[in-house]
Nucleic acid binder design. Sequence first.
DNA 1: TCTGGGGTCCTAGGACCC
DNA 2: TCTGGGGTCCTAGGACCC
Length: 435
Amino acid sequence: MAPNVYALVDCNNFYVSCERVFRPELVGVPVVVLSNNDGCLISRSDEAKALGLRMGEPYFKARPFLEQHRVRVFSSNYPLYGDLSRRVNLVLGQFSPEVEPYSIDESFVRLAAPVQHRPDYQALALAIRAAVLQQVGIPVCVGVAPTKTLAKLANRRARHVSGGVLILDSPESQAMALAATAVRDVWGIGRRQAPKLLAADIGTAAELAAATEGWVRRNLGGVVGVRLWRELRGEPCLSWHPRPEADDEAEGRRHSVTYTRSFGQPQRGQPVLCEAVATFAARAAEKLRRHELAAHLVTVLLGTDRFAATTEGATRTAVIYLPQATQDTSTLLAAARRGLAQLYQPGAAYVRAGVLLSGLEPPGQPQLDLFTPIEPARLQEQQQLMRTLDSLNHRFGRDAVRYAATGTRAAAWAGRNGFRSPAYTTSWEELWQVK
DNA sequence: TCTGGGGTCCTAGGACCC
DNA sequence: TCTGGGGTCCTAGGACCC
């Protein structure tokens, strides 16, 4: 049987490219997009990279430099990026039924096992690139190889190749690419492992691939390292999960749903924190219902400033167990409030909070709690209310209808996002206008 | 004044059971 | 007086990813 071939399609400077789709005047000039809360730089155009701006640089430090060089700055606009990401995947679906979105800006495409003698992957990769650019307006790079890890490696190198595609379908081309790739740039080798490998005289991906399996098992995180090592040698070991949220099989189901945010200003008062946590719980609950799941565990997180010199800086958590898994906002809200009450310490200055829902299962699973079973009629009522709430908010905009506990819109704890572009494609109020 | 957020996978270790 | 070993389940924490 012919082996599979994987293409990794990666959108170039994705968030910046999204902003450029609707503002052609941004093409050719330095542009950056900031993280939530306008905290740091998370996407840079090539021009911004050329100015020496680094990924993850705090915005407040870079600001004078950005102004001096007239860099265009945007707050992140996730509804817009998420929608364009979806459109990119639709285009990829024209080339293969097997598309696995890996992150908002990257997808793996499994290409049909080649029937003919030597398929022209180069031409195919170029066609993918042209189609995404033409139909969505986003430039991408494409790496093609027999394993996911090699496809990632090919993609990385494709960025510096004219045409933006690189095919590693022969042992010779793979050997060359491995020799030219620093080991710290291999997918799965992070900040911790890279120095360890260097100390063992392993500086390139080729040198890692040439190590013995026993050495890798002992020194590179056991089974995880061995899997990575095999993938580099062309043996596929990573599994394939097409359309992760579409199917309801236990296999591909997610394990948690989180909503955490930093505050615009440190917060000390319990009522304000209560509103923030209630808001985050309501958001997490929406996400839970979107994925058609219910949660048994509600974890509340409360964090103090980890950069402050005077305090410890720590995130503390409280876990509330719900005997019956639920996707009902008011039940989750009440649990979150109990968690907050356990955590809250008067006087502490909190800079971030969050809600994590876990112990997930499909809603309406058989009841295990024998003592306080919720009545089926009441359960149905709850579910109907949530469906109504979600559809109203979908139709009339986020927060058209919401819980009083979540407080006012102009909340004291709200984060900054001073430079946000309109949600051109997902919000009726902000639709792109042609004049 | 100002440093993001949301995930996954794996392992170690404790509690408990037989 | 002696005090095993295997299994399961759970949690905390590490490492990594974009």
